[in-house]
Design a protein around this nucleic acid. Structure first.
Lengths: 181, 181
DNA sequence: ACGTACATGTAACCAGTTACATGATTAA
DNA sequence: TTAATCATGTAACTGGTTACATGTACGT
């Protein structure tokens, strides 16, 4: 259910084509929800069929035609209704933690490598989040004011990554203490 | 792919039936990976077919027969191989953050209600995690020593929940400041 | 000649959820 | 007699991933 409302939300802010949407997804929603272009197109067709979206075909020169989607009244109503409803909190799904759980099958050196690899990945992710954060604060105050709510997930992302990194560093320190036991 | 290795990991620690597995899942792995009993049975059948599991049928009195699964050599090899391999870090998938993103469709009172509802849920989750943590530390030192690695995901869960709660509280405070703008 | 951006799709498959089905035992 | 626990499953559906397909334009 979530993808459809992510799509409706983006098109509510500004109409666009499937291709457009994909890019806007990557720049914003992808921090907390991702989707491939195939999913996007499938969802757009379904939403169109159900009458939640209008579709205007725009012929273009030298490029494939564009299908520009926008919300119908029914679409806006559906989005509104969903936005007010409680959303079920998701559980963590992290394969790496299953590997930790299976840790008795690894030597402590292998375990270290696994942890260090993940640390690297999370540090890199933190870096890109912080970069995006800096970009946000370097824009004009009007922009910051207008989009402050939409900016909050990024802040959560930053804090979550820091938490993960702290945890992994402590675990590494503990692995050192324990030696090869 | 993760479910199959979660199953293999649990059966590597101790053989058991599908029903057993389900309960052990709930007590341990479910903090970071969940599955329904249907998924479990399906996975067990597949793993058995592929020769990664042995199955011993145990007739019981007054109860349905039990199928006790345990790893074959091939199963242990597959688990080992997977445990050494890098695991792709998962992205956050949190519908609530999409709702935040669609925040312009809500009044700030509605937004407050949504946030408070989520805060409650995360506080409750933190409580149950901390309860499990206390139980762990109340057990004998030998037990703590033996399972310290498997206990780490719970610590991560606790810190993650705290982070979430801090973030939501700050957001609430900010909503108050902004008033009904 | 090669890659990237623009633009849209089909098909097959895998993973996860929901609903339904069966049937004995035990404790309130 | 009602609900919970033990124990295993089928079927239909929804959501997500991977692979494949097509074709122009523009820069290097």
């Amino acid at each position: 259910m979530s993808l459809r409302f992510a799509v409706l939300t983006l098109l509510d802010i500004e109409p666009g084509s499937g291709y457009d949407l994909k890019r806007r997804f990557e720049r914003s929603i992808s921090h907390f929800w991702s989707a491939s272009h195939q999913q996007m197109y499938r969802e757009l067709h379904k939403l169109h069929q159900e009458g939640l979206l209008d579709c205007a075909e725009q012929p273009q020169e030298g490029r494939p035609d564009k299908k520009v989607y926008s919300l119908t009244d029914a679409g806006r109503a559906a989005l509104q209704e969903w936005a007010e409803k409680p959303a079920a909190p998701q559980k963590i799904r992290e394969p790496f933690l299953i590997q930790l759980f299976a840790g008795h099958r690894l030597t402590s050196a292998q375990m270290r490598r696994q942890l260090e690899r993940h640390l690297e990945q999370h540090r890199a992710l933190l870096e890109t989040y912080q970069e995006q954060n800096r970009r946000f604060y370097s824009r004009d105050p009007e922009h910051q004011q207008r989009l402050w709510l939409a900016h909050q997930p990024l802040l959560l992302g930053i804090e979550t990554e820091k938490t993960w990194i702290r945890w992994a560093e402590q675990l590494l320190a503990r692995l050192d203490e324990e030696g090869d036991s």
